[in-house]
Structures are given as structure tokens and as C-alpha cells.
Design a binder for these strands. Sequence first.
DNA 1: TAGTCGTGGTA
DNA 2: TTACCAAGACT
Length: 372
Amino acid sequence: MLTPASSATKPDPQDLLAWYDHHRRDLPWRARPGVTADPYRVWLSEIMLQQTTVAAVKPYYLKFLERFPTVEALAEAPSEAVMQAWAGLGYYSRARNLHACAKAVVDKHGGRIPGTEAELLKLPGIGAYTAAAVAAIAFNEKAAAVDGNVERVMSRIFMVEEPLPKAKPLIRALTEALVPADRPGDFAQAVMDLGATICTPKRPACALCPWMVPCRARAEGLQETFPRKQKKESGQLRKGAAFVVLRADDTILLRTRPPQGLLGGMAEPPTSAWEPDYEPSRAVLDAPMEARWQRLPGTVKHVFTHFPLELTVLFAKVAKGTPAPEDMRWTPRMTLHEEALPGAMKKVLVHALGELPGAKAKTSGQKQAKSV
DNA sequence: TAGTCGTGGTA
DNA sequence: TTACCAAGACT
């Protein structure tokens, strides 16, 4: 006789696909039901969606598709245009790798995005998840795309007690065993839709879940406690100074950060080093040029993934014709919105100059630079 | 293997 | 406010 535990039904991929056919999200990068999506669009969307919400990606995806309609167009574009189009989305190495990948596709694959998981994995910016997702969604290869959604769903269905990230190999194996040969792409998207709309991190809507019956965690009432994961501590506060220079011809002093590392390749007003024990009163010593520096009241705060940052802002006006220091440039205040400025640096400029001209007003009153 | 890499939304 | 989270990749 079967015990209750061993008689638990196994999750049936067809049940999930049937749910997906009725409840799939309509997203800009998705083809119509039954139609295989365009590889370029799938790839582009998958890169943008890495660690990024659908809502944040949508406008960027549409803008990219308009500016770079094909992989050839993207490959031929100057890197500044790509970085500028990406500005604000975060994780800027994705943009650099995206561009490098487009060039590789044109140079080594005749402009065709490769159709197998193994070939995709060789391209810059494409890791295990993205390779499987593109292969499955755009080429119908039987590949298991395991992202955060899938990890959450599987860890609950099978009640995986091992914490992430150590449980990754096990979860991948469990997922591979479920991928149906006939609709691997739909299966991948179905699990992600399930994770995004039903099997959410908090308060999952189990009553609506096509896999409620076979879900082990649900049977125990422990669904919200999965996936297990080891928590990491947040980084130490770093402090520094940022220097906003307004020249009499209404231009602002900017520089471009080095291509590698934090905010690589992005634009910024010059700043001091960022250190835990930075002393704001010494900021004038770190200034990029001689000027009558004015220390603005308050600070600009910003939180990166691994550390919080607090910048003191110094402001100065200089005469027309003042030359830019080496490796810096003057940018018209009216075209600041065309620069590849990350969020932290926009906050600095807003703190010193007020709302940036030309910047599309964010949804009314939704966001104000956090200037204390 | 564990740290590095943004940003915006949510409770 | 703090903490966590979101279709990860790279070193």
C-alpha cells in the first residue's frame, strides 16, 4: 500500500501548459500563441530581463527595438549609442556584452543567432539560463531554462530542503526531467509566468495553481518558506564627494568611467574616491579644478547591490572658455538627458541643478531625488 | 566559490 | 525604514 507521501502525484507538464494557454501574459517580446518567436527579440529581452522586472524592461525593450531593429543594426551602432539607450536599466556590463554579442553574431555566425544551447553559451553575456531560454523559446530545443522563478517553483513543488545556491544542480535536474519535448519554449515561459503571477515569493496564490495538488510544500503549508537560501550581509556605507561645475556657456563638466567595474563606461560628474571613512570637509582637496566651490547642503544617497553610497555635492560656476581637465568634457546642460547617466549620477545633477532639462518627467510626483 | 555588478517596487 | 526581491553573468 502506498503511503500518503509516496502516493503524492507528480507534477504534470501538460497541466501547466494548459494553464499557460489560458493565462499567459501578453508581453512585447512574445510571439502569438503557436508561433515561434524571433531569436533577436527573444535574446534582447532575455538579456534585459536578467535580474530586472518586466515593468522596468518594457519601455527599454521597445526603445531598443526601434533604434536597433536587427542584430546587424545593433552590431554596427557605436557603443555610446548602446550605453545611452541602456542608461537607467542597471547592470551595465549587460549592455557591453550585448553589443559584443551582436558583433560576434554578425562576424562569426553570418548575422544569425545560433540555435543551440551549446553554441549560445559561447557568446558574451549569455550564461546557462539565457542559453537555455533562447534555445527553447526561439528554437524549440528541449532545454531547461532555470531562473529565479523556476528555482522557487521547483523548490516548492519538490520541497527542496537544501539552500540556494547549493541546490542549483538538483533543481536543474528536477526541471530537466519535466521539460516536454513538444513545447519546451512554452514550458519555460509557463513556469516563469507561474512564478511571476501565482507562485510568488510572498503569499503565493496556491488556490489558483495548476500544480497545487502535486506541490509538496503546499501540502505541508510551508510554501512561503521555500526556497531555502542563505542570506548575505549588506555592504558597508561608502562616502565621497561629487563635483558639479556649471560653465558660463551653460555646460556641465562630465567624464566617462573606465569600461570595467562599477558603472563601467557610464558618464558622471567627477567624484572623489568612495571610502567608508571619507571626510566630506576634505572634499575641496579632491576637486577636479580650481574654483569657488560651494558645498551644497544635504547629501545624495544611493544603494547599490553590495553597498550603500552617500555623496556630498560641491558646486561651482566657472568662466566661459574654462578648459576641461584631462579626460573630461563640457556637455550642454540642455542635452544632459542624452548622456549615459546612471541613476546615482542623475541624483547628483538634480541635487545641484534641479530637474534635468529634456528629461521625460517621471510619472508625476513618483520620484524625487533622495536629497536629504 | 563567493564577490561584483543597478535599479525600482513592495511589504 | 529596512529588507527583500526581479527572466543572471562574470571572475
